[in-house]
Amino acid sequence: MLNVLISGVGGQGLLTLSRILGQAALSKGFKTYIAETHGMSQRGGSVSVFLRIGEDVMAPLPPEDDVNLHISMELIEAVRYSITHNERTVVVVNNKVIRPSLPGVRIPSIDDMLEALKKSTRNLYVTDASDASLRLGSTIGANIVMLGFVTYLLDKSSILSKDLVLGKVLELGSRELNARLFEAGYLDATGKVTQETIDYLVNVMKNAGSG
């Protein structure tokens, strides 16, 4: 069983990201749930989506101590949801800060937020998905870059193959651009991800409970 939390800010493409992973999981024959956030909180608010994969999955939300993979599109939200981390939760975070719309709001420094995340887990990965997307000519493609990164993790831990996920990405249209965004994330992961992280995910998928 794999429990994934996807967090970020309304409008960052979290639903698209989670649906692609969910569809890929279903194609591979996994029982899948995606608990989405709709409505009011989508208007630039804090958003969390839960994806659950595995035969034993029966409920929409994962157990509170069993989030195995946290994909965050934004740093403040990554820190906010870091209370769900167990010491080995794999965290992939987009190095991007979106200022909450509150007058005079104080935001911790990026260094402080990264330090807090590091304390919450042994498996932290920081990616420049928003920058990479802008470099590739898209203001809305950071989620696909993130997806490329995460796909490396899932591919190497034999949960979902790269071809399977990429196939679902290409179904979105804008094939050439999306393929480049996806590859950028995948390539970034190739140099960063440790064997310990992969072993953890392999183990999580094998066991019914947490690793």
């Binding site: 630039g44 804090s46 101590d65 209370i83 981390h85 167990n86 909450p100 935001i107 911790p108 304390k119």
Partner: peptide
Amino acid sequence: PQVAAKSQVSVPARPPT
């Protein structure tokens, strides 16, 4: 549940807007 202690860094709320 054994999860991470609440982060030392306090982050601002993010109401919808």
